[in-house]
Amino acid sequence: MSSSTFTRDQFPLVHRLRVRWAEVDAQQVVFNGHYLTYLDVAISEYWRATGLPYPDAWSALGGDIYARGHQLAYHAPARLDDWLDVGVRTARIGNSSITVEWALWNDHRLVTTGEAVYVHVDLATGRPASVPASVREQIAAHAAGAAVTRLSLGDWATWQSDAMRVREPVFVVEQQVPASEEIDDDDPLALHAVLHNIGGLPLATGRLITAGQPPGEARIGRLAVIKAMRGSGAGRQVLRALMQAARAEGAHTVHVHAQTSALPFYLAEGFEVSGTPFDEVGIPHVAMVWRTPSA
């Protein structure tokens, strides 16, 4: 492993983190064992970026991955408040094993390099199992810079099952919205968007309602992303697809009742606050609107 020649551009995922006080030892440098924690943080981001959020994507395929071995080499120390860049890539995939190479830099200095071997295990048997073809495809697509997700638009009859695989854990379980209020009369009338990974796992969803709205207006709602994919851009993909569909139907004004925690997300996409905060199903919301420049 010629790891000392690693450069950032060799890694499809580079995650930045900052050294904390608790990670520095009596020698005033990062304690050696913490570098595996840095790897663990970065590899979680790597799986998210490949469209294989851990553990959701793996358990959906009936499996999990377990660390089998690590090799590390230390090239320079890291200290309190240093910004560290951790690069991660899949070096090779065997029958049941996945070998990951990683490197960590502080600015231009190579600090640590390593190799980690994971074994894919069948959850039903507890035994090593072949790495699924869809996992191999996700990793290859990410390494090539290709899309690792697929977005579909359609009616409720087509996408109810997949949409609810996102909405139920987000709204009913996580946010404790009554199940009786989660599905409503607008669902059969709406256009639904569902974002999947290549293997077909639903990652995010949302809906567009034009029926019953004033001419040229539409409403977007039920936008949800599974917890493990938040911050990945999945929600933005769904929102932009629904906005494009709204414009295609002639809408110049789009309304949304946004949870106040999502206010920065909608503001970044061109929405404006159009009302005062209010409570909806026990969660603070605010009315927002998007208008075309000529509307």
Rank of each mutant, 00 (worst) to 15 (best):
S4E: 14
D9G: 02
Q10M: 14
Q10I: 01
F11R: 00
L17K: 08
V19R: 00
E23F: 00
V30N: 00
Y35T: 01
V41L: 13
A49F: 10
L52V: 06
P53Q: 02
A57C: 10
A57Y: 05
A60H: 14
A67D: 10
A67Q: 10
G69R: 11
A76F: 02
P77D: 05
L80N: 10
L80T: 08
D82A: 02
D82W: 02
W83S: 10
W83Q: 13
V86Q: 00
R92F: 04
G94K: 01
N95R: 15
I98P: 01
T99V: 15
V100Q: 04
V100N: 00
E101I: 01
W102I: 01
L104S: 05
W105K: 01
N106P: 06
T112K: 02
A124N: 13
R127E: 13
R127V: 07
V131G: 02
G145C: 05
A146K: 13
A146E: 15
A147Y: 04
V148E: 01
T149M: 05
T158G: 05
W159N: 08
D162S: 12
D162A: 15
R167C: 10
V170M: 08
Q175H: 09
Q176Y: 07
A179M: 11
A179Y: 12
E181L: 14
E182F: 06
D184G: 06
D185L: 12
D186I: 11
D187A: 08
L191S: 09
H192I: 06
V194W: 02
H196P: 09
H196D: 12
H196C: 07
G199S: 11
G206D: 02
R207F: 03
R207G: 08
A224I: 09
A224W: 03
A224E: 02
V225W: 06
M229Y: 09
G231F: 11
S232C: 05
A234K: 07
G235K: 07
Q237F: 08
L239Y: 06
R240D: 14
L242C: 06
Q244C: 10
A245Y: 03
G250I: 11
H252Q: 13
H252D: 12
V256A: 12
H257Y: 04
H257N: 15
A258I: 06
L263N: 01
L263Q: 10
F265N: 07
L267Y: 04
L267I: 08
P277V: 11
V281Q: 13
I283D: 05
A287H: 12
V289L: 10
V289M: 09
W290P: 00
A295F: 11
